[in-house]
Nucleic acid binder design. Structure first.
Lengths: 190, 190, 190, 190
DNA sequence: CATGAATGAGAGTTCATTCAT
DNA sequence: CATGAATGAACTCTCATTCAT
């Protein structure tokens, strides 16, 4: 109990939730400490400061999710199948940890700007898959960034509507519909 | 009087820019006063407080843009044409006032949650157009909210990529491509 | 009263006293605010922070005293007379504002290290006077820095003893004795 | 036991260095623990707290140096010789352990104020020697405290300049020059 | 009426010290 | 007995808001 691991976990879970609910700027160290039942000072033994806590949380999970996405995509053959796999991946993350999904993909902390090109990045995974689909003539010529925007937009906006309560049920239940919509949007002459 | 109006305009333009660049929470009254060349105290003669300034800015322009969108949509016959018109409307806003676009549609201030159902709302305009398209069998049966998410997602994510520098040029130049993508995404058996 | 000048003065007088009594590190912003009867926040309208307050206080008065010392020295002909004048200058500062003397010449805030060579500096004034005395053969050859140490040491340690209560009375009353001692220390074969 | 002693020594050496470099207030227990490769908690097994550590360090060495100075002075006959011996003692301490010299004689921790009259004290040793010189008519009548200030000032300010880099080389090399200067300063009609 | 000095609550952070392990 | 996680008070600094001038 005094080894700090439990405390770290409690802090991170709590912080994630608060960051998503009230925004990073709107969440105070005191908020986190109170909700995690830790003293404010204790937080600083684990993280150099608020910024570092945010970055730790973001970069660790962002990278991990990118890796998952890459595995899913690699295991599928052809853009259509890759889209299915990736969209399903996004949906699974949403359904299994909605808070994490929001923190990684929807919340506006300034962390995305801190990512270096070398770091694994879900957007780049999607882009690479789409780009290779274009190259293999699976879909007509399209700016890969525009294609990525279309795919990400469809997925993320649907997730956003789910959070706002406009859409109900699980994301996974819609996965097939979403990847189909992406595919159609990318293929003018299907 | 004239002077008061000029001051208000300077304050609002400045505030909008700062809110978008540094976030609402990250922008201080002092920042605004300094950049708008007004005293801090003077700001409180025009707005009851920071919150009210944010809300004023948001609700006025949000409603106005919703009205514009509604006119565009109403002037077009059929969902395909309505989509063209609305997407073009989004693109025009982006190109003419990128800052305003970001503030209204991309930034996460908590203002959207304060909107009452009675207030004009771009998302609802899009939803209504899509819903009537479904009702008129122009597109196959689809949850109107899902369809709205798809349209909004494609437009907003493209705008986001433009802001990040992933995509270059004007949004208007892409308007046709975007509304075409929306249309295809909504029409499984086109 | 609301123009801030009075407040500034109150802050500076108070701060100087506290810095000398409890040390810079040992004095908190709250201490100063309380003693100056100002809110803590108000301090930050006048100074960017504690460091800047310390530096403002130090550099302004340090430079001013150096200028005074230089005038005194320049008005005297010959090292012996210059010593008399400068030592009397130190003594006058001590007697007229003991707190300031301590802050400028005895306290160990890290400000001396921040001085640039271009800034007026009492030690350099003394050194220059001594060096010119050596050059004009008024005193035998001696490392000007060593000579400066001797002069400064005699003056500052006497002041220190006065503060500790080991010595009583005014410094001015001892001025002649001190500059005579300095002169003898510098002239082996007087 | 052996180990405990080693640890104590490591702590004390480290602490002394840090106190001199960053000031007592500017040095944290954590700094010391880290630099001495000890846990923070372990420090409290050796010392009741930070204050006690400072006091232990100061009083022990201050007393020891006073004793050394007293022996040196006692072994010399006449004020002139006593001055030579004592100044050499100061110089030797400076050259052999500059950090200790700074901590004992130049740094402004509030420890000097805690000394009781009963405790051995370098300043008192110097004072006693000078006072007896006055009494024996070796030097003209002078306030013994003023004489002490002159001697201490010459020595300490020279050491200070050495630390600032204004003077180079060893203090011992200057010992004779310094005690000669002291002697001259004390003897008007030599 | 505009100004900007002042307030005061609260933010992030530090640190000597304690104490469960 | 050593460790280092935890505490909690205190610190520096920020900022929306008020208000004397």
């Amino acid at each position: 109990m005094r080894d700090g691991t439990k405390t770290r976990e409690r802090i991170e879970t709590t912080a994630l939730l608060l960051f998503v609910e009230k925004g990073v700027a709107g969440t105070t160290i005191r908020d986190i400490a109170l909700a995690a039942d830790v003293s404010e000072g204790a937080l600083y033994r684990h993280y150099a400061g608020k910024d570092e806590l945010v970055w730790t949380l973001f970069s660790r999970h962002y990278g991990a999710f990118a890796a998952t996405l890459d595995e899913l995509q690699a295991a599928a053959a052809g853009l259509r199948a890759k889209l299915d796999a990736m969209v399903a991946g996004f949906c699974r993350l949403f359904d299994s940890d909605r808070t994490l999904f929001r923190f990684l993909l929807l919340a506006q902390h300034g962390q995305v700007e801190k990512l270096t090109p070398a770091m694994a990045n879900p957007v780049e995974i999607v882009r690479a898959a789409v780009a290779s689909g274009v190259q293999r003539r699976e879909i007509p010529l399209i700016d890969p960034d525009l294609a990525t925007a279309i795919v990400m937009g469809i997925v993320l906006q649907t997730a956003t509507f789910q959070i706002y309560g406009r859409l109900r049920g699980t994301m996974t239940a819609r996965a097939a519909a979403l990847s189909a919509a992406c595919w159609r949007a990318l293929t003018p002459d299907a």
